[in-house]
């Protein structure tokens, strides 16, 4: 029934619009207008509408800036994120100026030069000076943008010094994240996808002693404040993306290779709650590469702790092969050859 009404409403709408259009057209014809050439009146009306649009459009944008702007991501919670935000704002200001100026010109010209019956356009086919200006000015501005952008990019992507960083692996699969802390030796043990059986969810190779003190954690990712974190990212099925929106960091996880990112958290979760006056606030990792049906629900809670809290929390996490269990495990044959872990960037 409702559907029927909707269809009726749509049909009525079309009929009304088309009839109105006819009436307008007939009226224009009676006034001596040519049916398909716009009359001066139509030109004027449309010209004015461009002006109205200009004002409405800018007001709409201003309204969004005021209303939606505060709801975008809060201040960056990592060292590189702060630099990134600065550069983002810098570029944003430039493009906003370009956007505003060109739109004023475009819509204003459309209004100002609407067709009059006794008017003739100015023949102005080209002008080398103007064309030179608007080739070279954008080129110069872009040179600055490229320079600043690449400087920061190089800085962010230069691999972390693992001896001075906290090494953590992020392992993705449909549809969750698992973390592995490198343990006392700060070295991740080797892993191989063929060993992913039963409880060995990351396929750790028990023949590699570096892995014995590794700590596998699900559900929550804890990070220490003010320490460079070096992430090694792997995937077991499809491509996912490890996206830290609040830390302005992101890297895809790709089956068959280990990808890297690193950043230094600068605001603890508790601190951020205070700053945002929101005691429910939490950091998250989101999956940001389409990975299947439940892509939208693939996430992990992130907790940034003070160094002391972090140490205490980490101490409570079980090791992969605690010393007591070790002797038994090493004598067991491994299922497959261990594989070299680092592959590509």
């Amino acid at each position: 029934m409702v559907q029927l009404l909707i269809y009726l409403a749509i049909a009525l709408l079309i009929i009304t619009v088309s009839q109105l259009a006819r009436v307008f057209e007939l009226a224009a014809e009676l006034k001596g207008g040519h049916k398909n050439k716009p009359t001066e009146r139509e030109n004027r009306n449309n010209g004015r509408l461009w002006l109205v649009y200009l004002v409405a459009f800018f007001s709409f944008i201003l309204w969004q800036l005021l209303n939606y702007g505060p709801r975008t991501l809060p201040e960056a919670a990592s060292e590189s994120g702060v630099k990134l935000d600065w550069l983002f704002n810098f570029n944003m200001i430039i493009i906003f100026i370009v956007f505003i100026i060109t739109h004023i010109l475009l819509f204003f010209f459309a209004f100002k030069y609407y067709g009059r019956d006794n008017n003739r356009a100015t023949f102005f086919p080209h002008n080398n000076k103007l064309e030179l200006i608007w080739t070279s000015v954008p080129a110069a501005v872009l040179a600055v943008i490229i320079f600043l952008g690449l400087k920061l990019w190089t800085e962010i992507t230069t691999p972390a010094d693992d001896t001075k960083s906290e090494v953590i692996e992020i392992y993705t699969k449909q549809f969750d994240f698992t973390a592995r802390y490198a343990g006392k030796d700060n070295v991740l043990g080797k892993a191989n996808y063929k060993l992913v059986i039963g409880a060995n969810v990351l396929g750790l190779d028990s023949a590699d002693v570096n892995g014995h003190d590794d700590k596998i954690v699900k559900g929550e990712l804890h990070l220490p404040l003010n320490k460079e974190i070096s992430f090694k990212i792997r995937s077991q099925d499809v491509i996912h993306s490890v996206y830290f929106p609040y830390h302005r960091a992101q890297m895809n996880s790709v089956p068959g290779m280990t990808t890297l990112i690193h950043f230094k958290p600068t605001i603890t979760s508790a601190d951020m709650r205070k700053r945002l006056k929101n005691d429910k606030f939490d950091y998250y990792i989101l999956c940001n590469k389409i990975c299947g049906t439940s892509h939208y629900a693939m996430k992990m809670l992130v907790v940034v702790d003070s160094p002391e809290e972090y140490a205490a929390w980490l101490a409570k996490q079980p090791e992969f092969l605690p010393a007591t269990a070790k002797t038994a495990a090493i004598t067991e044959p491994t299922a497959a050859e261990p594989k070299k872990e680092e592959k590509g960037m």
């Binding site: 398909n36 050439k37 716009p38 139509e42 030109n43 449309n46 010209g47 060109t102 010109l105 475009l106 010209f109 459309a110 030069y113 609407y114 067709g115 009059r116 008017n119 003739r120 356009a121 100015t122 102005f124 103007l130 064309e131 608007w134 080739t135 954008p138 080129a139 872009l142 943008i145 490229i146 952008g149 690449l150 990019w153």
Partner: peptide, 30 residues
């Protein structure tokens, strides 16, 4: 990054050329 940002230059030229075409025209709003 470099090659991509280069594309912005010819694109900007096109945009400016369109705007200038309107300038002092006798615009028929079909």
């Amino acid at each position: 990054v470099f090659t991509t940002l280069l594309i912005a230059i010819p694109s900007a030229v096109k945009a400016f050329n369109y705007i200038t075409t309107l300038w002092k025209g006798n615009i028929q709003f079909t």
